[in-house]
Design a protein around this nucleic acid. Structure first.
Length: 468
RNA sequence: GGCCCGUUCGUCUAUCGGUUAGGACACCUGGUUUUCAACCAGGUAAGAGGGGUUCGACUCCCCUACGGGCUGCCA
């Protein structure tokens, strides 16, 4: 194979947040580069001055960072490279692979309307200036158009889509430099990818047709064509193009919904890509396994249930310290109050069991309610119901016996069993009021787990609160 | 309209001419259990339709249907 190092890139337009589909495209580029000791570059395609904003760029960077996709080198601004783009357009002019076109937009519109009136199925604009004698050039603004081949075909060798053949007659002489001297996207991408040394262009398949045009620019400049890989877009659960009505479309929304980044990464990697039966894997494993050949050709639908399941596995797999760190970040972006010192201390102990059953951070926080509340614990309606007179009496008889036991499950278990036996009830009947007293609710983690986390003094205090 | 791409269980997919079409999620049933989960065991479920090619097609070719993309001096 080639010995040239792999260089991939992600090139979003800063016109909004980082779309989940864009996030996946970035992820694929990142995986591919990282798995081959290559580089993953980031370029912001901000040539559309009307719609590009610095806020959007910041949001995209945040989204990528959250997903754990680190890029190499500086972020490239396409807009700042406009002089270079114009330079290449003029080089094309000099090479004779482009020409000055003085047709006005009105003339072009009229041309199309006329062809349409004739009943033409499509109207490729043919500029009258394509072969005009420079002596006839008017003193007027002009655009630079590429002198595209009119016959034959352009073949795209795509790693995902296979060999795609486009007839040249269906492609017009696209403009590379506007009459105001600004470069057009189609030129800018090629020049930037070339200058940045991009070897593999992995992007959405909405660009598949564009690849033919771009390839013409590569040819016009005598540059090496990169490896193409046009990946299908992500669709909503109904199979339609993913849009707002399907729910979250922005990467940061997923963070705010509390999906752990590792799970998100795993899910997005598996969405539209497979490696045998591999389902749950770390990023390191994904980097090792990832290849272009495993990418499917059909658009994949988002499945929130599977996303959750995948996230659940990663929650359970996570290191407690890292999970605590991510939990705090989640609390911040979700606009929830930060953990107090006491809560954080308890959380550190509770994570070992909480993470096993939670799939998302909101779920984890929900299960951690017992350690978040402070005295007096106010029971909800159902919990209050289980704290009847009899139960309160039982709890009252329990507290003295907790004073001197060693605070471990092994020591606590016999005591609670004794209490249950003495009162002629099963452990389940005892656990209910205990849960109510300790957490103020009926659905909680194991009573032992809770007791161990909040500690003897707090448990006794809560039991006394509830039984008095 | 034209051009291009796609179509295996509800969903993500494996298969790369010969399989009882496999796995995962979801769903259903059972088990475990201290509540909710989690967990364990089992189950239901698929090659869009029609033509070819072939001894043999989910796999190759064609047509149709459906979905998507492109068709700008947007990116």
């Amino acid at each position: 194979m080639s010995s040239t190092p792999v260089v991939t890139r992600f090139a979003p337009s800063p016109t909004g947040y980082l779309h989940i589909g864009g996030g996946r495209t970035a992820l694929f580029n990142w995986l591919y580069a990282r798995g081959r000791g290559g580089k993953f570059l980031l370029r912001i395609e901000d040539t559309d001055r009307e719609r590009s904003t610095p806020e959007a760029t910041a949001a995209i960077l945040r989204g990528l960072t959250w997903l754990g996709l680190d890029w190499d080198g500086e972020v490239v601004s396409q807009f700042e490279r406009r002089d270079r783009h114009a330079e290449v357009a003029h080089q094309m002019l000099a090479r004779g692979t482009a020409y000055k076109c003085f047709s006005t937009q009105e003339e072009i519109a009229a041309f199309r309307a006329a062809r349409e009136a004739e009943g033409a199925s499509y109207a490729v604009f043919v500029s009258p200036w394509r072969d005009a004698d420079p002596a006839t050039y008017p003193d007027a603004p002009f655009a630079i158009r590429m002198k595209a081949p009119r016959t034959g075909e352009t073949v795209i060798e795509d790693q995902v889509q296979g060999r795609v053949i486009i007839k040249n007659e269906t492609l017009d002489d696209m403009i590379v430099l506007r009459s105001d001297g600004t470069p057009v996207y189609m030129l800018a991408v090629v020049v930037d990818d070339h200058d940045m040394g991009v070897t593999h262009v992995i992007r959405g398949d909405d660009h598949l047709n564009n690849a033919a045009r771009q390839q013409m620019v590569y040819d016009a400049m005598g540059w090496a064509i990169p490896v193409w890989a046009h990946i299908p877009l992500i669709h909503g659960p109904d199979g339609k193009k993913l849009s707002k009505r399907h729910g979250a479309t922005g990467v940061e929304e997923y963070q705010a919904m509390g999906y752990p980044a590792a799970g998100m990464r795993n899910y997005l990697t598996r969405l539209g890509w497979a490696h045998g039966d591999a389902e749950i894997f770390t990023s390191e494993e994904a980097i090792q396994m990832f290849d272009l050949a495993g990418i499917g050709r059909a658009p994949a639908r988002l499945d929130f249930k599977k996303l959750e399941n995948t996230c659940g596995h990663h929650m359970a797999m996570a290191e407690d310290a890292a999970l605590l760190h991510e939990l705090k970040a989640f609390l911040a972006v979700a606009g929830l109050s930060a953990l107090t010192e006491v809560q954080e201390l308890r959380m550190k102990d509770a994570l070992s069991f909480l993470k096993k059953s939670a799939k998302t951070f909101p779920e984890l926080v929900e299960k951690a309610a017992f350690l978040m509340v402070s005295r007096p614990v106010v029971p909800d309606e159902k919990a209050a119901a289980s704290l009847d007179t009899v139960s309160r009496g039982i709890l009252k008889s329990l507290t003295p016996r907790l004073q001197n036991v060693s605070w471990s499950k092994d020591a606590l278990e016999p005591i609670l069993n004794e209490i249950a036996a003495e009162n002629g009830i099963g452990f389940g009947k005892l656990a209910a009021p205990l849960r109510a007293a300790i957490a103020g609710r009926t659905v909680t983690p194991s009573v032992y787990d809770m007791m161990l986390v909040i500690g003897r003094d707090e448990v006794i205090a809560r039991l006394e609160d509830a039984s008095s």
